[in-house]
């Protein structure tokens, strides 16, 4: 699977789940791209954040990742 195909699979997967869940652990992404190793998927996910497709949510101790703009946003956090 190419990097572009992996990105597409991740986006489709997240969009499919967006009604029930907006934030995911990094490990949840592994099953979206079963052909790739965790380290490669980690790099792709982080790249997708920099490209503006995904965004981080951090509790301070744990980081979750979701589609940019989905779920609770900054204006609603306060």
């Amino acid at each position: 699977m190419t990097e572009d195909e992996a990105k597409k699979a991740i986006l489709e997967n997240l969009q499919g789940k967006s009604k029930t869940k907006s934030k995911f652990y990094l490990k949840d992404f592994y099953s979206m791209v079963p052909d790739m190793k965790p380290r490669e998927i980690k790099n792709i996910v982080n790249k997708m954040v920099q490209e503006g497709h995904l965004e981080y949510w951090s509790s301070g101790s744990t980081t979750l990742i979701g589609l940019k703009g989905m779920g609770k946003q900054h204006q609603e956090e306060d």
């Binding site: 920099q50 951090s58 956090e77």
Partner: peptide, 24 residues
Amino acid sequence: WKHGGIVGVFGYGGGIIGRYCDQP
């Protein structure tokens, strides 16, 4: 306090921890 959020600096997934109070 309410801990956590999407705040951060561009490209970094750490180093900033969002915090808000519940009596703004």
